[in-house]
Nucleic acid binder design. Structure first.
Lengths: 195, 195
DNA sequence: TCCTGTTCTGAACATGCTGTTCTCTACTGA
DNA sequence: TCAGTAGAGAACAGCATGTTCAGAACAGGA
């Protein structure tokens, strides 16, 4: 029961594997990647890899989880800060565009020729969950009719997904502020339609 | 130089392979599928498969191409029929929801746990192209500022993608008319934002 | 009907990845 | 210091890939 702390070796190995994955994803795309590539780059034993992760999807998802947590935190902060409803709602997107801009190569590899379905599906699902939380609090502060919102949530999340993918992969590169405010102009009328 | 006609054997083989793919996709999902599975089901030689298609993605895309052509045709008809602008625009979506409803299992397997990135990407791209055509004719009948429309197109296509995927996979199952008119209520304000 | 060129078959093959198992070694943290 | 935990490295069976080839089956025109 060593309890709290995680063995240094474990931390080290997981970090090596994640770093290797990230750098390789940018070079070759996720689908073209083998576990062999990852452990070669990370300089880690084959058995070691499988002791930590089930497969390469599992490794990837553990990384995406970090992003999800950080966006959720942003969202929480924005909600508690107060202000006009229209300002607070969907506040996490700004942070997400910033993040996407910083990790552009990784994001772009999600859309590229050799992307991988798991990564797209997970990211899409993450957006749906984040948007749902927003739409729910925006439309039914006291928790009422919710089922009818679902298709609208899916529409907005899908639109956000499309917009992000276009933004990181296209030639035209509006700033974070521009693309974020465009998104808000498109999404907020849709939320209104949910009422 | 046999020219026009296609050898019956060729037609037969391609049909067998496509049918096998469709039935297997519904059972196992695309990613979990091997070429071996497909040729076993189709009862076709291994060498024959590779004589017709490069790999399973290639086979799948050849099927998706048919859908694209049929939707494009619908779109063309709607545009030439005339009527109010708001009625004509995005006319292909109704047909698409009908198609999705008929091939629900295949569509659902595009979103499921074992979907496959190529299929999602291709379908998404198809939607983007169809939406682009619509938005372009709706906003700039005389062909003017077009680059600024692109993010809006991506947003709408992404939203449509999300909506279709939710519709075919969820428990709540509004009718084709309901979901299509909801889509229009969400998308048309966004097109207006493009002006 | 026959004939020529095309297509399919079936089997074999080299290659590469997967996930598991094992023993031995090295490190950690109390 | 030392018991427990983690990693290295190699070996393994299993399976899918994409290619090749000789021979059989077939198509459609003359």
């Amino acid at each position: 029961m060593a309890a709290r702390t995680v063995d240094r070796r474990v931390q080290r190995t997981r970090r090596l594997l994640r770093d290797a994955l990230m750098s390789l994803v940018q070079e070759k795309g996720f689908e073209e990647l083998s576990v062999q590539d990852i452990i070669d780059r990370a300089d880690v034993g084959r058995a070691t890899f499988y002791a930590h992760f089930d497969n390469k999807e599992d490794l990837l998802l553990s990384g995406l989880e970090e992003l999800r947590i950080s966006l959720k935190e942003r969202q929480r902060q924005a909600l508690s800060r107060g202000g006009a409803n229209d300002e607070r709602v969907l506040a996490f997107t700004h942070e997400m565009f910033v993040h996407a801009s910083q990790h552009r190569d990784v994001f772009r590899s999600m859309v590229g020729k050799h992307s991988g379905a798991a990564i797209q599906r997970s990211f899409h699902k993450m957006l749906v969950d984040l948007v749902r939380e927003e739409v729910m609090t925006a439309t039914t502060p006291r928790g009422a009719a919710s089922a009818a919102c679902e298709p609208i949530i899916e529409f907005i999340a899908g639109g956000l997904f499309g917009l992000v993918m276009w933004w990181v992969s296209g030639k035209a590169r509006p700033s974070v502020e521009e693309v974020n405010s465009l998104f808000r102009r498109l999404a907020i009328p849709a939320i209104r339609a949910a009422s």
